[in-house]
Write a protein that binds this DNA or RNA. Sequence first.
RNA 1: GCCCCUGUAGCAUAAUGGACAAUGCGACGGACUUCUAAUCCGAAGAGUGCAAGUUCGAAUCUUGCCAGGGGCACCA
Length: 604
Amino acid sequence: MFQREQQLIEEKIQAFCQANDIELAELKWQSIPFSGEWGISTSFFQTAANEARAGKGNKVPVPQRAQQIAEQVKAEIGSVPGISHTEAVKGYLNLYFTTSEYARRVIDEVLTSRADFGRGAPKDERVMVEFAQPNTHHSFHIGHARNTILGEVLARLVEFAGFETIRATYPGDMGLSVMTAVWAYDKFYKGQEPDGVHERGRWQVKIYAEATAKLEPKENETPEEIVQRESYDAERREMLRMWEADDPYVHEMWLLTREWSLNEFRDILRLLDVKMDVWFFESEANKLGKEIVDELIAKGIADDERPEGPVIVKIDEKLGLTKERYRTMVILRSDGTSLYSTKDLALAKQKFEQYHVDRSIYVVDFRQSLHFQQVFKILELWGFPQASKCYHLSYGYVTLPEGAMSSRKGRVILFKDVYDEAVKRVLALETERSGNVPENERAQIAEQIGLGALVYSMLAVDNNKDIVFDINEALSFDGRTGPYIQNAHVRANSILKKADVRTLERSNISTFNFELSKHEIELIEQISRFPNAVQQAANEYRPLVMAAYAYDLANAFHSFYHAVPVLQSESEEVRNARLRLVAAAKQTLANSLHLLDIQAPEVM
RNA sequence: GCCCCUGUAGCAUAAUGGACAAUGCGACGGACUUCUAAUCCGAAGAGUGCAAGUUCGAAUCUUGCCAGGGGCACCA
């Protein structure tokens, strides 16, 4: 926002150094920390260090020499329009902006761009984000929720940063575990399914866990029990075989039960405000897989060891690596059936050829790091230039205090149960605390706040760390939480509602020609950081960056709210300027919350 | 055996190689007839698993250990 001024000063510094025979290192600019007021700074450590290394004259220690240069440069620069004052301290040159000018530029930009404030320039690349890969026939638990939230927020960030973005989901709808669920339904529970999308989901978890328990060997089994268990196992395996052979009855059962899961999944996506563009099913990738294996064999990338062995790709060998790194990947079983790897290769080809994606992001947990490294390397050998732009966004597991979640053991925390609990808690709090939520909006606001708490708790941890799920922490409404940020938005809204909004709309230019308090300056600074936060979060594929930013912004607003009167300002001019500041803060909070997939309510 | 991730105040987390390691929870002391406190203000609390190294400067980079988790040919 002060690029012209920065450039002018850079030129002055360069000219000064040239005149004084100082070999200037590249200037890096950063904002000044711990500033009651703000500005940008650069340092001369590198320049001083280079001098010392070159053995140039004065044997002054680096920090002192850096300070010397800073002081000389400061004297040389003199005064610059837009810059209120400069200082040389500890080897840094600090430039403080003229506050009124800076404030005006920031606020006017926000209020001109509105929902587009912070949006990046359109980029010439199409990105696909693949996320939300739940298994059907089980249920959607809190671990799937972390994945879905991470993926959706990443997609929003990348999209807002300027990339054309496609959201893809890849449900796991086949395999032995799926068939176990179908078998259990068909054998023991046919026609007994409850009504209600989520009731049926919970019921599916229950019968699946029950079925795996029946199939599990136990201690002290009687011979009859062993016979029983083995015949159950044979039945479900036979069912899997029939499914592979497209048996009509098995397919009908499979589709029926799959549809229940998908109904629940769609409803959860609706709750999370996720709009998928592409649905890849594992069962469909399964069919595509076998063709690409032939292609890889024909191209000499894969080695066919059938019938004795499987089809493999000796990745290290093909890449000419001597050290063990990517190892060997099996891409087709010796009996000719597909593997996870077969399907991922087929899927990638489809992404590149049918959807023309330039960049492909996979949001999948960290256990599959090696798998994706192998897949990406095979894509490279295969000749896809996009292979270098495939990225596995790995993230840590959501575990329970008593250990890992397990659908098989029925030891899962379902997303919907946490969601319901969240809404219940907010409703209880609403009756206690907030008098100004209209009766007919309470339920909706409760959903927004409850989900806000849950979603933020998933985003406020860096993705490669595990989360031990504690419902009281996830649904906390105090401190560094979603509701804290939502509340800042609500407070900004309540000020604007009480003001005469027409005044605000009439003046489309802000004038901050009065002494700004440190709270106002801090708030303006936070608002101005938003575009950079978007770019950083998108470039690094890190939703956490945006989550942390949104909290800092809300924090600045809350402090401002307490310390600085708006409606009761000392003059009309100050009041108008502050109203514009509040409007800009509200807008930036709303933009941030949107990127975090959190609703921004008007009241709470 | 090889590879990957993690290790920061009591707990949970943060920190483009840079200025005093930053927040929240908890505990402590204050502030609601106010733009209604899901908030704010104040004070306490760690020198970043250990040991070397690189650097003017390291929580961050390198190496080696220690601890926890994960992965390594026909599971997904």
